[in-house]
C-alpha cells in the first residue's frame, strides 16, 4: 500500500456571479503519494490555481474533502489550520508580486519562522536564515537587499526559502517558473528537484507548460473547465494521450527542433464560459469528435492501469 500524503475527494468550488454559478473546480478527486509529484496542467481559466488554493484553504471550498496526513483540512478550526499550514506550503507564480517590496531578504525569510514561533531566540533565527539562504543558493551579500533590486530567478529563490522555512512536507508550486527566462527556469527547476530528493517533499506542480510538467512530474492530471479530463503517469500520458483535448494540447507545444513539429491538431474556438456549464461534456463545443452522447457529462474512467480518461468516445476515434 502506497503511502498517501494527500487525498482530494470530490473537491468543488463554485463562485457566485451575477450571471449564475461559476464552476471553477467541479468535483475533482486525486491522490498524491509521499515524495512524488503530481502535475496539474491546463490553460488559463481551467481552475488549476483555484484547486491549489482550495487545498490550502486560502479559498474555502464549496464541498469535498481534503485529507492531508489523515486529517480533513476542511474541518479544521482557524488555529488548527494555521498549525497544519506549517506542513503545506505554496510557491507562487509571480516572484515580483508575491514578495512584500518593503521587506528585506532577511525579513522575508525569517517571517514564517518568527510568526510561527518555530525558533525562539534571535540568534537561532539568524542561523536558520543563513542555512536557508545557502540551501536555495542566495549569495550572502543579498542578506539585506530588497526584492526590487533582484532579478526574477533570485526572487523565486526567496519564495522557495520562505516555503522551506517551516520544513513542510508538501508544497504546491503554482507556475513557479513561468515568469522566468529559460536559462533561469532551468536553474529553479533543478533546485526544486534537488530539494525534493533531499527533503523528501511531495509536490503538486501547477502549470500550463507541458514540457516543464513532463520534466518534473510523476503523474499528470489534465484539467479543462474545472474538470480533470485525463490523468495518467507522465510517460503514459505523453506516449499515449487519449482525450481529444490532451491530444490537441500536446500537439500545440512548439518544439525547438527542426522537423520535430507534429501535425498540429487545431481545436476550434476558445474555452467556453465556466458559468452554469450545464451537463454536457465540458469540451463538447470545441471537440472535433463530439457526438450526441457527449451532451452528457462523461465520468473519469480507468481505461488502462492508472490511466483515467473522461470521454465517451475512447476507443472509437
Amino acid at each position: 500500500m502506497a503511502d498517501t500524503i494527500l487525498e482530494v475527494k470530490n473537491l468543488t468550488k463554485y463562485f457566485k456571479t451575477k450571471r449564475g454559478m461559476l464552476h471553477a473546480v467541479d468535483d475533482i478527486s486525486f491522490k498524491l503519494e509521499r515524495g512524488k509529484t503530481l502535475g496539474l496542467v491546463g490553460e488559463s481559466g481551467c481552475g488549476k490555481s483555484t484547486t491549489g488554493r482550495t487545498i490550502l484553504r486560502l479559498i474555502e471550498p464549496t464541498s469535498g474533502e481534503i485529507i492531508f496526513e489523515g486529517k480533513d483540512i476542511n474541518k479544521l478550526s482557524n488555529r488548527e489550520l494555521r498549525h497544519a499550514r506549517k506542513d503545506m506550503q505554496l510557491i507562487f507564480q509571480d516572484p515580483y508580486s508575491s514578495l512584500d517590496p518593503r521587506k528585506t531578504v532577511n525579513q522575508l525569510i525569517s517571517e514564517p519562522i518568527v510568526t510561527n514561533k518555530i525558533l525562539k531566540t534571535k540568534a537561532e533565527v539568524e542561523e536558520r536564515v543563513a542555512e536557508l539562504m545557502a540551501t536555495v543558493g542566495l549569495a550572502p551579500r543579498l542578506f539585506n537587499s530588497y526584492p526590487h533590486e533582484l532579478d526574477g530567478g533570485r526572487r523565486q529563490r526567496i519564495g522557495i526559502a520562505r516555503a522551506l522555512a517551516m520544513e513542510p512536507k508538501f508544497i504546491i508550486c503554482d507556475e513557479p517558473v513561468s515568469a522566468l527566462d529559460v536559462s533561469i527556469q532551468a536553474q529553479i527547476l533543478n533546485l526544486l528537484k534537488e530539494l525534493q530528493g533531499e527533503l523528501g517533499l511531495s509536490f503538486i506542480f501547477i502549470t500550463h507548460d507541458l514540457s516543464v510538467v513532463n520534466h518534473f512530474s510523476d503523474e499528470i492530471a489534465v484539467m479543462y473547465l474545472g474538470k480533470i479530463v485525463e490523468k495518467a503517469p507522465s510517460e503514459e500520458l505523453f506516449a499515449n494521450p487519449m482525450h481529444p483535448y490532451t491530444k490537441a494540447l500536446l500537439s500545440a507545444i512548439p518544439i525547438p527542433e527542426l522537423g520535430a513539429q507534429k501535425e498540429r491538431i487545431l481545436i476550434k474556438g476558445e474555452i467556453s464560459s465556466p458559468i452554469e456549464p450545464g451537463n454536457e461534456c465540458r469540451f463538447y463545443k470545441r471537440c472535433n469528435y463530439a457526438c450526441d452522447r457527449c451532451r452528457e457529462l462523461p465520468a473519469l474512467e480507468e481505461v488502462s492501469p492508472n490511466h483515467f480518461v473522461a470521454c465517451h468516445r475512447i476507443g472509437e476515434v
Partner: peptide, 24 residues
Amino acid sequence: MDNNTTKRKYSVEELKKYKKRSMW
C-alpha cells in the same frame, strides 16, 4: 556566485557584513 549551489552553510557574521539600507 549564487548558483552552482555549494551546500556549505553561511555563518551569521558573513551575512551581517551586509548592512541594511533604509528605504528612507
